[in-house]
Amino acid sequence: MFKKLFGSILGNNEEENKQQQPQNQHASQHHEDNYDDEYDDDENYENEDDGDAYDPETLHGKHYTIDQFNAEVESRAKAWIAREERDGVKLEQKDIDNIYFNYRREVYTAWNNCSQDQMLRWEMANSMTHMGIATSGFVKEDSSNPFLQPVHGIDLRTYTAMAKKIGSGVDYTLVCKAMNLEPAIWEELNTVWPQRMAEDTSFTVTTLFGQYYGESLDDITQLANIEPEMSDSAKEYLQKMKTDPYFYEELEGARQAAYNYGMDGAQWILDNFGINLAQFQEVAMMYMEDRNKNWNSNEISQRLNHRTEKP
């Protein structure tokens, strides 16, 4: 299953692709092009992480400008679209988006002679510009974004910190007290922020919420000192989870497996390791962000395999 999921993340999974084709094409029309050559290793590109070749912010190569890049994508996409239209094919917006998506990948890979991993890192760094969708690890707080204006004076980061404390088992009245807020105000925050997440089609609010969740947030001093009770061994497990990605994958695998066996996975982790859901999610977010920023398909697949095998 993970293999499949993983394949679909990379966008090169034969079966996923097949599913997305119209169901009723004749059988012999599928698979004319084969996937035989698709699993080329990335080993030829090992020198690419030198860092100097790419702009640290956009991850575009430095030997061309973004305008040049866009112009190239534009001309290839337009030519394709024109050809399709000449053939009488009716293109929908999503088809056009797809054409651009593919040409962006193609041009980037060709111009930078890079691996698929590098291409994916670049794609995530630019998901907002390309598709209007935020990717975890790449979003910055933008004070002009109306979705990010504080609610009753509480910004998203502070709201996240409060939600995290409450999620970790601290009674919400204590959290309110520490912030000098009445529960009625907390309930407003806890309604308006999720509403904004639902309204924001770019997922910036949701993604930032997740990013903050992965931070320690101890600089929000009012909340820094209220902690749920935790045993020494639980503290050790938590530390291990933060520093040993394979241990984290094991727990994540076990947590999911617990659900499959009629148990509450969050409770199972709490019972066995003393780690609560909020603490668990914090570490999960930390790894997710790290994964996006340093996309490395070999390592990801190794970790996912570990998740499914061990427990």
Partner: peptide
């Protein structure tokens, strides 16, 4: 309905395992 939720997750989990096996 959390007890229900856990039982349901268990049944769906079994279906998922069948799917994985077939896959």
């Amino acid at each position: 309905h959390r007890e229900y939720g856990r039982l349901k997750a268990g049944v769906l989990g079994q279906l998922e395992q069948i799917r994985e096996k077939v896959d």
